Amino acid sequence: MRIHKLVHTPQEKTVALSVRHDQKPQNHNIWHYHDELEFIHINRGSGSCFVGDSIQHFTSGDIFLIGSNTPHYWLFDDEYLQENSYVIADIRVVHFLPDFCSNDLLQLDETKHIRKVYETARRGMLFHAPAPYLLQFFDNIGSQKPLNRFVSLLTVLDTIYTTQQYRLLASSNYANLQHTEDYQRMNKVLEYIRLHYRATIKLQYVAHQAGMTTNSFCRYFKQKMGKTLIQLVHELRIAHACKLLENNHLSIKEICFECGFQNFVSFHKSFKQIVGIPPNSYRLSKK
């Protein structure tokens, strides 16, 4: 898996933003970044999203705002990717450059809230059980005329700052990777983890993917990702556990081993630390 810089808005400065409605996930399993901010409503779909050093399980209804050049990728669950699956995703995406309304306009006092939202979005923003104004924005923008889209986006960004109803994803000490050697090395590591997180992951194997000694790799990974390798693996396992708790009749102990944990105590402790509640409480909250 290589890092890709994608372009979502026309190169000619004639269109301020791009609006897309997908029924199949686009750019799935591509660790990528782009100059545009990404405003996405998962109306129907589920999986895991990597934003910076965060791994977030997402479900139908979630909305994300991801900042300019913030690395991320989407791992939709298998049922949304199979060719002949009866399960169809419903994803609405708006991409826009930070200066979509011109730099001069962004320097005005009237748009200071929008500048602050841009800065906050660099860590990724999740709107879980989003407010009606956000749902209305995505319901309407696909059919609006260009000028109305422009005004709607300005209004919703200002309202986001005012309401403050979101959760930040990437940690405050996350150091955005440089889009060069760091990305190429980290992509190999993340791809290895993604493919093997439900099995036993040995540090020396992961360090080998990065072309480093184990000690050097531990320091490098903590510096770049803001967390240890085992913390990242546990987050990915817990994201998978959340999906199974919501949609599967396996017992919690069976889910523990299905996700790659070797003992229930470690699973229970990690789940509560990452999610905030024990796995049995999480399952009950989703019924």
Rank of each mutant, 00 (worst) to 15 (best):
R194A: 15
I274E: 13
M1Q: 08
I252A: 14
R198M: 14
R185S: 13
T214N: 04
D99L: 03
Y118P: 04
V151A: 08
G276F: 01
V265K: 01
L97C: 06
S251Y: 04
I42D: 02
N176S: 02
V94N: 05
L126Q: 05
N29P: 02
S54L: 00
A170K: 00
I88Q: 11
T155Y: 07
K222N: 15
T9P: 06
G260H: 07
I55Q: 01
I63L: 11
D78V: 14
C218W: 00
G61V: 03
L106Y: 03
L203S: 02
E181P: 06
N43T: 03
Y197N: 14
R2Y: 08
I66S: 04
V7G: 13
G226H: 06
Y197F: 14
F39V: 10
L65D: 09
R149E: 10
L284E: 12
W74A: 07
Q204H: 13
G47H: 01
Y73T: 02
A199H: 12
D62V: 00
C242S: 15
V117S: 11
K188M: 09
A16H: 00
N215S: 09
Q144N: 11
Y282E: 14
H249D: 13
Y197I: 10
G260C: 09
I30L: 12
L169E: 01
H128M: 10
V19G: 06
S54K: 03
H32S: 10
Q82D: 12
K227S: 13
F150V: 00
Q164H: 15
K24C: 10
K287F: 07
G61Q: 11
Q184I: 04
N29R: 08
R237W: 12
H113Q: 09
I193K: 08
V15T: 11
A199N: 14
S281Q: 15
C256L: 08
L147W: 12
N43L: 08
L134A: 05
